Computed example of a mutant assay.
Amino acid sequence: MNPATEQEELQFPTSLGTSTATEIRLLGQDLATDLMGKVSFGELAFWLVAMRRPTASELRVFESVLVALADHGFTPTAIAARLTYLSAPDSLQGAMAAGLLGGGSRFLGVTEDCGQFLAATLGAHEGPTPETDVEYDEIALAAITAQRATGKFVPGLGHPNHKDGDPRTPALIGIAEEEGLRGPHLRLFEAIGRMSENALGRRLPLNGAGVCGAALADLGLPTDLLRGFALLARAAGLLGQIAEERRNPIGMDVYMSVDRNAVYVDPQSPTAPEER
């Protein structure tokens, strides 16, 4: 085959971005004239995944989620980013990546885990979509009981700091309600909060990462991609953490406080910590 002909036939289809010597197109739009200065970053992020522009109401809920997940203090992800920057200040990308890599089942990943748990619970429900709180409570109680029977935690329940309630939870539910987007995932999530004491013997707060997963699921976004939105939000927070580390560093203090207080323990000693 003629190399020129082969090159002409070679195609890699995409609905996202393409460029020529004179133009950049994204989502079928001219990037420079149709999108820049006219579309917010949050709207673009939604559009890139959903392949449709969000409504004004959807955008408000979506961007509220991004704000809720951007930063939450000196979490392990923030500390990882700061300590990596301390070790390799020439690698900003390494510090950012270190923080993002820590997004898992305990931090950030709860957003996706909760969205998937709620979606699976609703998908397994036989009959029409519940309408009353009583119906949601019955489904929630059964879901919590079944989840705990497997020895697993219910994603979205509990928080290490906000023992009496995560302030992000009612705020996001309120915004969704105002925009007419308090759908079945959020309503089931609320029911899980109401039924936690009945099922577990103690009331646990609904955490912010979980309510974000419920809200994103109600927006129709793929539940197996929800962790990506949490990481997108946290990227902004991590950049802020690194910027603050440059202005007012604490990384060396964190490192020294741990290193200088390390105590050797004989693994054969009866007082040695048990292996986990």
Rank of each mutant, 00 (worst) to 15 (best):
Q7I: 13
F62M: 02
T129Q: 15
L204A: 00
L48T: 12
R227P: 04
P130I: 07
A215Y: 06
D71L: 13
G237C: 10
P155E: 07
L101N: 12
V134G: 01
A88R: 05
T22M: 01
Y255E: 12
A146N: 11
A215K: 01
A235I: 01
I144F: 13
R182T: 11
A233I: 08
P130A: 05
I79V: 15
T271K: 05
L100S: 06
G109Y: 04
R52Y: 04
F12N: 00
E23Y: 00
E8T: 09
L59A: 12
H125W: 14
A50G: 06
A143Q: 05
T22K: 01
Y85C: 02
L16F: 12
L225M: 12
D253A: 14
A45S: 14
D166L: 08
T18I: 11
E190G: 10
H159A: 07
Y255P: 08
A68Q: 01
F153H: 12
M256T: 12
P13T: 02
Y85N: 03
E179T: 07
L31F: 13
G240T: 11
G174V: 05
A171W: 10
P184N: 02
A78T: 15
V110H: 01
N207I: 07
S91Y: 05
F117D: 02
I139R: 00
G102T: 07
F153I: 09
